[in-house]
Design a protein around this nucleic acid. Structure first.
Lengths: 147, 147
DNA sequence: TGGGATAACATGGGATTTTATGGTAGTCAA
DNA sequence: TTGACTACCATAAAATCCCATGTTATCCCA
């Protein structure tokens, strides 16, 4: 599980340290890391190769001409399998740097099965937005168990 | 897994570098590369010999006289097993160059089990189309389930 | 519980290897 | 003998590896 938030520096080579707890999470299940353009927000989403493989398998189940299949294929095209260096850093591909408007700082936000990488300002926006919704509409009604 | 997108040059001999990550993907499973006319789009589709074998097997499951079987057999007829040169380049057969309207640039787009090779302009069209669908219809249901 | 020793982590920089791509020489067939 | 195709060599740019270092977190023992 990816949990917690941390702020790391992106250097001139677009290298950034993946938070140690996220790395451990990947290592202990022997999975590689996939980064891709988040479909809902202006940020990068990171997840495990197993999870990505599940999406890929799902494509074959869909009508090849459907909109969903089309979007999923595009998602693959905007995804990258990422290698760590010996210090636990990764290089963020240019495409993703631009998409999430990252420059010299990254905010890592664990959300369970995956995590987000935000620019500090976009992170701030989303954080404020969540506080506002919480204030106006109250806490979410969570359904932990079905039937 | 074939992931990510890259733009490579096609030279006068119709040679083009297959992106390194795609090559690694083929090498590590010791598979050869098959290129063929994509059935859905004006592009070349590339995949592994094993997956191509799966297509061939699938034809046998179909009614031999059906239109589907006919189309799939036609697809096989325009498929090529491709050899790499020492630098990881391949020569794109004339038939496929013409079919995908390629000239001096190719866009490689990984879509999981296989990849597409587009002309830059056709790629741009498809990319724009996906943005539009995403905006109008939102992300695929599959994605929303995951968190 | 305090505080020093040790390990882990984040980050910088330089050396080395890969990659993409242009070119040339050799081979085979018409 | 010419033209097409293939194998191989060369090179610049980019990606990757590896070492160094300061800082933070953790451990361990008094």
């Amino acid at each position: 599980m990816f949990l917690s938030t941390s702020h790391n520096k992106i250097d001139l080579k677009c290298r950034v340290s993946i938070p140690a707890s996220f790395r451990v999470n990947l290592e202990k299940s022997n999975e590689s890391l996939i980064l891709f353009k988040c479909l809902q927000f202006k940020c990068i989403e990171g997840t495990t190769s197993t999870r990505m493989q599940a999406y890929i398998n799902a494509i074959d189940e869909l009508d090849a001409l459907s909109d969903d299949a089309f979007l999923l294929r595009m998602m693959m095209a905007d995804s990258f399998e990422i290698k760590f260096d010996i210090n636990g850093r990764v290089v963020i591909p240019d495409t993703l740097m631009n998409f999430a408007e990252l420059s010299d700082k990254a905010v890592f936000m664990g959300i369970g099965e995956s995590f987000y990488i935000w620019s500090p300002s976009e992170y701030e926006n989303q954080y404020m937005k969540s506080k506002k919704i919480l204030k106006e509409k109250g806490p979410p009604k969570l359904i932990l168990k079905k039937n």
